[in-house]
Nucleic acid binder design. Structure first.
Lengths: 194, 194, 194, 194
DNA sequence: GATGAATGAGTCTTCATTCAT
DNA sequence: AATGAATGAAGACTCATTCAT
């Protein structure tokens, strides 16, 4: 799955440590998705096929683990945001980015926790993560506004809050369709007529 | 509960128990607001000035306590829903109900937990509570649609999900304004032109 | 020993809680004597025939437990100090108090930890405990000095340090005789000739 | 860093290992001084700029490390003892040796642990270390007694116990002056009247 | 020889729940 | 009915020790 085709045999493979780190991240994401943010750290380690000590070596605190878990997804969304900036239609660019965010939650369920973390205002990590998302969406929104396509009614942060909040309901049956519908309605509602 | 008013010269009147029950509910709402749904039951009892044993006598399970805590708020929203049905403008009726729901979260912060509970699909109590909210909003939405004022794009459940989700972000600074703005945009976006 | 002759049968005996508290203190003293200050708290609880939770209810922190454990002994030494003040011979008064302190360590071995704690200068508890001991010895020493029987060469704190330090060696075979000998030599050395 | 200029064609010379050994000993002494005898072995290794594995290679057990750490100091005290035997005044010889022992604790704080170890009667290492100290002090004391200068009241072991114990209090402010004063009083008290 | 990643037993600590008074 | 003491399972976290590279 993650096997990087024909990796050249490194000398001093500290690669096993790197592999373990990845395993821990995968296990954490999976377990957080299922058991929520209170997942037992030992269960994470076991699911990764490692000892609890190893988990702690890699991630001394629960927060560090969580940040690492979601940084990858956040990074991907940031990247998508940059791509979306070059979409010919600014509104489409924004909409597609929002869909991507939702789909990311839908596909890799653990993702929701990144947002969940965002809720905890006090945590420095939450601030960092949500800050990066805001940095991703703000330009998209600004571009559409500057192009005269959207009314300047809501901030990027608002939209993010909407997506994040709605996605927290992802356990409801049919939530994904609902959220897509709602977000589309929201964006449509912001569009300048004609 | 079982023995209604007109209490005979009993030593400790039933009203003691009733008062304790109320105290427990208030304490629970307050603590859930502050510490989240994981509030310690003993802290709830102490905040109510009662012993933990008394809490357990009144509410044998955490869920029963929570349901009781939020039933009152839910009841109020249901009532507001009925009133909103007689608003002259159907869209205004819907919008005002949504605002009321949001304000309830804003004012009595604990309220959010009712929604939070709604997330836990597995719980019978959650189903009951969210079911009642859907029963409150559906007629409002239907009336506006039937009056040709709103497009039939989203279900009441969708809207509820939007409100609930967004309100889960209530720890963000300025969340209330954000949510009101977003919900208004959402409703506006659904309005039939002209 | 502590049984308060003919205590009237209290109504709501919270006496079992008090008994448990005593049991915990006894168990703690015994275990600290054997295993040192790192005694496992669960072992203390078990030795007291109680659950670990009960220990934590009575003594939320290890320090609180330790302070309680030694407060009784310290109290007794303070009391002995007051009695020793009325000894006809001031030097004998001082010497007897020092012997009592040593014997307390010899008899109830755990006692040493009170002194051991004294070592940790940073802890408020240590300060409190050793402060009380200094308050006990200072008057004894001052009286002997004022009576012209001892040279004003060492402070009460010094003597205490000597006793405490030497007693920390109590695991050496024959330590008690050694310490008594040394302390006696010390006091003799301070005596004014003739 | 480790490559000592003009290295002969050996890859890693034996001196590397010897240097590492010294580094470990220094690090251990420093850390024990600060954190006490429970210092974490990994911290020792890191402070020495080495891996934990290297520490274990040199000192398979904690005790072996500690013995090595203090053997140097003990050796020095033994040497000083031999010198003190040739002091013209036997009492001065004894006194100076005791001062040296105290100053060693005062100067190289870690030294105290050697004494602390002595407390653990069960350990063979402790026995060895304290045995050597007794071998150093006994002749000094015997000489003074035989010269008719000191009463034969205390054994060398007693005196050692006094010094060791008092030095365990070295965290108290002003401990050094206290201990010197006390030890001097002790020796004076043993002196045969002129 | 050196390294440091991995391990997991050992402790601490919390908290929901029961039950004697 | 009310109380709060007792309980112990559950989970977090540390650190000595081993071992593959």
């Amino acid at each position: 799955m993650t096997k990087p085709a024909a990796a050249p045999p490194r000398r001093k493979t500290r690669s096993d440590a790197a592999r373990n780190r990845e395993r821990l991240l995968d296990a954490a994401k999976a377990l957080i998705a299922v058991r929520g943010a209170d997942a037992r750290l030992e269960a994470v380690a076991r699911q990764a096929g490692l000892g609890i000590g190893t988990l702690y070596r890699h991630f001394p605190t629960r927060e560090e683990l969580y940040e690492a878990v979601y940084r990858r997804d956040i990074d991907q969304l940031v990247l998508l945001g940059e791509e979306a900036m070059s979409a010919s239609d600014p509104v489409e660019g924004l909409r597609s980015w929002l869909h991507a965010a939702i789909d990311m939650v839908a596909t890799k369920k653990g993702m929701i926790a990144a947002f969940a973390l965002s809720t905890d205002t006090t945590s420095a990590i939450s601030k960092r993560l949500s800050g990066r998302l805001i940095d991703a969406i703000d330009p998209l929104l600004a571009r559409a506004v500057e192009a005269g396509r959207l009314r300047d009614e809501v901030a990027g942060e608002d939209l993010l809050l909407a997506v994040v909040g709605m996605c927290m309901m992802r356990d409801q049956p049919g939530w994904r369709a609902s959220v897509l519908r709602l977000i589309d309605s929201l964006v449509s509602g912001l569009e300048v007529e004609g």
